[in-house]
């Protein structure tokens, strides 16, 4: 095997995460799809760091993790407050702006 296998795995995981975001209706599962995409990019970053012998890729992955943690905190808080007001976690129910 070569390092390309890692990159292909990362691409597959990224597309599965994107498919989850596009196809699922439950806001929490959609959010987990976003997390999966972030993780896939992290794998690619770590692999590129190894490919080039430069640790900067790992530092980028580290920053992605920290930003993802902050994003999850705010996103889940939004989901909880939406659920409180609308009693639903489905992304299709949030169509207030629809005429």
């Amino acid at each position: 095997m070569t390092l390309t296998h890692y990159l292909v795995l990362s691409a597959i995981l990224f597309s599965l995460g994107a498919a989850t975001v596009l196809l699922r209706r439950n806001a929490i599962i959609v959010f987990m799809g976003v997390e999966l995409m972030l993780n896939a990019t992290n794998l690619a970053l770590v692999t590129f760091a190894r490919l080039h012998g430069d640790l900067t890729g790992q530092v980028m992955a580290f920053f992605v993790m920290v930003v993802a943690a902050a994003e999850v905190v705010v996103g889940l808080a939004i989901i909880v407050s939406i659920f409180r007001t609308r009693k639903s976690a489905s992304v299709d129910d949030i169509n207030l702006l629809k005429s």
């Binding site: 691409a11 597959i12 990224f14 597309s15 599965l16 994107a18 498919a19 596009l22 196809l23």
Partner: peptide
């Protein structure tokens, strides 16, 4: 559309 887009992206 979602399936096609996800598959295409992959």
């Amino acid at each position: 559309i979602g399936w096609v887009a996800a598959l295409g992206l992959g």
